[in-house]
Write a protein that binds this DNA or RNA. Sequence first.
DNA 1: CCCCGCTGTCACCAATCGGTGAGTAGCGGG
DNA 2: CCCGCTACTCACCGATTGGTGACAGCGGGG
Lengths: 219, 219
Amino acid sequence: MLNEAENLDNSPAVDAEPERRVRDRGATERAILAAAKSLLAEEGFQNFGINAIARRAGSDKQLIYRYYGGLDGLVEAIGADLGTWVRDRIPEDAGGMFMLTYGDLMERLALLLLDALRNDPLMRRILAWEVSENTEQVRRLSEARSKALALWLDRMRGSLAPPKGVDAAAVNAVVIAAIQHLVLSGAAGGQCAGLSLKTSKDWEKAATALKRLVRGVYG
Amino acid sequence: MLNEAENLDNSPAVDAEPERRVRDRGATERAILAAAKSLLAEEGFQNFGINAIARRAGSDKQLIYRYYGGLDGLVEAIGADLGTWVRDRIPEDAGGMFMLTYGDLMERLALLLLDALRNDPLMRRILAWEVSENTEQVRRLSEARSKALALWLDRMRGSLAPPKGVDAAAVNAVVIAAIQHLVLSGAAGGQCAGLSLKTSKDWEKAATALKRLVRGVYG
DNA sequence: CCCCGCTGTCACCAATCGGTGAGTAGCGGG
DNA sequence: CCCGCTACTCACCGATTGGTGACAGCGGGG
């Protein structure tokens, strides 16, 4: 009993060192940032707070105030970290350059974005946060995400020009909106507007519909 | 309480004393439901709680437990209320019936839905809630909303059959996803994927792009 | 050597949360 | 007239929140 209580308390068994926190500010900062990112990705922004982050990082919340200046600064750090998103998701072949038509390109980009978002819980949570709140925190994060997405699209597009006679910016925004909502809705409830979004077969149907829409405009 | 000080301070019309609550259960129930709906519409689901609702309704939170069985029951009541959404948004001419082609119909429905959502804060908040959480509460509300939307679409569609060779269900789901995300994103941050969504001119651009996409598939 | 600064820990604060139990006030039927 | 039912109010609970001030311990520079 006593031993167990002791163990549960905070101090591990006598032999195993309690892993007395080494005095390493850098490591602590990284632990906090990682805890914040994983917490946001796994739990969403509902339970995203100082206490929960400190708990998950195994640090004291005081350190969050000291090192990041509170939640705001920490969120900003997450936003800065989002820049890495682009580097991680550019296929080596950078296929865009060799696409024949703008339609080929947009179809490919749409499907790539769909998959990328489906496999990125953090990005999904940020996206959900964006449409649910309008605080300064969210605005900063939103800007970082938006910038990363724009950069990614730009890199992938290469030098291919959109066709004349269509408001490509508007059309692409609508397509991206569809992709984002499909992913959000699917992740949250497994369906969207009556269309089930659970199995990979479901997602293929959605992807096919998406391709049809893109092709219908860009040929 | 405050009212006593108020009286001493600057006594208003003595007859107009709305102070004492009339003992009218029905009125109280309605006040609570209305408070909950307006609170959700105006503040969003972040601050949607027993205390806030009771505060806004001017009633004691105990009454929410008594009359609705807690937040869950109250949310369910809101969901039931959502059925009225359909009745309120069916244009008298029910134009769908006289549409020539499925493309005409879907284009009209898309634009109607876009406007309807843009002007319905409550529906928007519920929509945002749906993609942000996955609790039982939200699931019930989501189901009610989804049912209302499906019923509306069905009423509007009339007996017009979708064209062969296209997975109309999937395509329509993607279109609806785009509409919903455009509205959410626009309401929250005033833009979506780089496309500004503030002025009515902005929205016209989005609507035009939406029409192009629908027409591209359904002709 | 001692002392100061940085890292990490802990205790405590006020506010708010959802939830409950006990009590008050007014209307209506006997 | 009075009693009981019901609408309503209030006080309190434990838990959790964001936030702060004080303290312990190590280590490097004077």
